[in-house]
Amino acid sequence: MTIRTNAANTPNALHLLADPPVSVRAKLAAAWTSFMFLYVYVDVLNFYKPGVVDGILNGLVWRFDVSSTLLTVMLASVTIPALMVVLSMTLPARANRATNLVVASLYIPYSVFNAAGATWEWAFFYGLSIGIEVLLLAFILRSAWTWPRTHSNAADVATADRLRQDFRR
């Protein structure tokens, strides 16, 4: 037996929430923002590993001497995804898609490299953090790859070509 009620006349009626579509730009910017939060927090939490802070105070990060070159490379590695947040919202669609595909593709092996030299004791920490980073990058790749296209008919294409030729003259 199905009970039907008129929602407009029911004082305690359940109102469904609107679920408007989210633009590809907003999805990409949100994914890059999430990636950045995770990326930075993994680095911050890494300071709690025994010996890390002592190594830094002694001028070593991993096996590298702390130098202006190392810090510049490290800054660049966090600057690129940070810039992707704003670029994802502002670049024209074609450039936006290409930029997201290239940068996310390059950051997958870069993220995986962060596990280099890790011991089995820290495998879950790095596995979880890198796994989520790679999932976010895969979401970025999928979102950029499946960017919706507009469909035009042959007459529109011919008109656009003619306008371009007229403009060049």
Rank of each mutant, 00 (worst) to 15 (best):
S34C: 09
V24I: 12
A98W: 11
V85N: 06
G51W: 14
I132M: 14
G117D: 14
G51D: 14
L75Y: 10
D54M: 12
S34E: 03
G51I: 15
D65M: 01
N114K: 03
F64T: 00
T33N: 00
A123G: 05
T79H: 13
G127A: 12
P109A: 00
F35Y: 12
Y39I: 08
V85P: 03
N114A: 07
T69Y: 11
W122P: 07
V78H: 09
L28T: 00
S34D: 00
L57I: 06
T33I: 04
A98L: 13
D43L: 09
S77A: 13
V22L: 05
P50K: 15
K27D: 00
V86N: 01
N96F: 02
R25M: 08
Y39M: 11
L101Q: 08
L28N: 04
K49H: 15
A115Q: 06
V24D: 04
I130S: 11
K27F: 02
T69L: 11
L45R: 04
I130L: 14
V42C: 04
F35P: 06
S67C: 05
V112D: 06
A115L: 09
S34W: 06
I130P: 09
T72E: 08
W122C: 03
G117Y: 13
Y48H: 11
D65W: 05
Y126N: 14
A29F: 01
P20E: 01
P21V: 04
A76Q: 07
K27Y: 01
G131H: 13
S68H: 05
W62T: 04
G117T: 12
M84C: 12
N114C: 05
Y41F: 15
F35H: 03
A98V: 14
S129G: 13
M89A: 11
R97N: 07
Y126D: 15
F37P: 10
Y41M: 15
L136D: 01
S23V: 08
V22T: 08
V73S: 08
N96D: 09
S88F: 06
V134N: 10
F125S: 04
V86F: 11
A98C: 07
L38K: 05
G131F: 13
L57D: 10
V66K: 03
P20A: 05
L71D: 02
G51C: 14
R94A: 14
N114Q: 12
M74Y: 07
I132K: 10
